[in-house]
């Protein structure tokens, strides 16, 4: 047999009043506590020069660089709480990432932190700073960092909605020498973005240039490019027909 409940109105008034007051107190306290904890967030300090960290590393520069990167990665966890990335000063963060890159050369860790961890911020300006960092540091070792630049290009397009930056990064990838061991899809980004920008002629020229060179040997890749070429040529033709109608 289901037990029935008495209506709320039948409860003693002082009990209801006390309940409402305590609920309000809990909400106010939680709100104030949240602000209090957020005020306890300690921001990043400016990093010293790379030479100082190298000196402090006692000869283990690579390890020291990685330990600094892990320390930085844990920065948003303070007083037993995870703080929002929007609280972090991204200029200082980029300085730290630069410094770690200089200390342990040949490491992918700072680029990975920028592209996978700190890019999850909701603030477009902060995201832009991380993308700038990735683009700047890509030239240090394109072979090591092409994945990060490709990710950054995708983020610039989809998350930031800035096609100019996305195209610039994609162009940087496409212009890498054939000796760089990188899958063709990374080089194809540029013409795909150009097509999205309705710059079909540029995209077609690019694909034709790619097909004429020896850079694309893979039959599947050639088939993909030829398919895209026909597709873009069709679109271009259709777009040129529309005004005549």
């Amino acid at each position: 047999m289901r037990r029935t409940e008495r209506p709320m109105a039948s409860l003693p008034r002082p009990l209801l009043l006390a309940f409402m007051l305590l609920l309000l107190a809990q909400i106010v306290y939680h709100h104030a506590d949240g602000e209090r904890i957020e005020n306890r967030y300690r921001g990043l300090s400016s990093p010293y020069s790379a030479d100082i960290y190298r000196g402090l590393a006692l000869g283990s520069e690579q390890l020291f660089g990685y330990l600094l990167a892990i320390r930085l990665q844990l920065h948003d966890n303070q007083v037993g709480k995870h703080f929002r990335y929007s609280l972090i000063d991204y200029d200082l963060l980029a300085d730290w990432l630069d410094r770690i890159t200089e200390i342990s050369q040949g490491t992918e860790y700072p680029m990975l932190l920028a592209s996978r961890v700190y890019s999850s911020t909701g603030d477009p300006e902060q995201l832009r700073k991380m993308l700038e960092f990735i683009e700047r540091r890509f030239d240090d070792d394109p072979q090591l960092h092409w994945r990060r630049l490709a990710e950054a290009s995708v983020m610039a397009k989809h998350k930031l909605g800035d096609m100019e930056i996305a195209l610039r990064m994609a162009r940087k990838l496409a212009r890498q020498p054939a000796s760089l061991n990188m899958p063709n899809w990374a080089r194809d980004f540029e013409f795909l973005l150009l097509a999205e920008l309705n710059e079909l002629e540029s995209a077609i020229t690019m694909i034709q240039a790619l097909l004429q060179t020896e850079a694309v040997n893979d039959p599947d890749e050639r088939r993909f490019l030829q398919g895209k070429l026909s597709d873009f040529q069709q679109k271009l033709f259709e777009s040129q027909q529309i005004p005549d109608k």
Binding site: L63, Y66, L67, I70, Q73, L74, T107, E108, Y109, L112, L113, R116, V117
Partner: peptide
């Protein structure tokens, strides 16, 4: 804690 290169670190 390490995201990549955990074994070497």
């Amino acid at each position: 804690l390490a995201i990549i290169n955990g074994a070497a670190i």
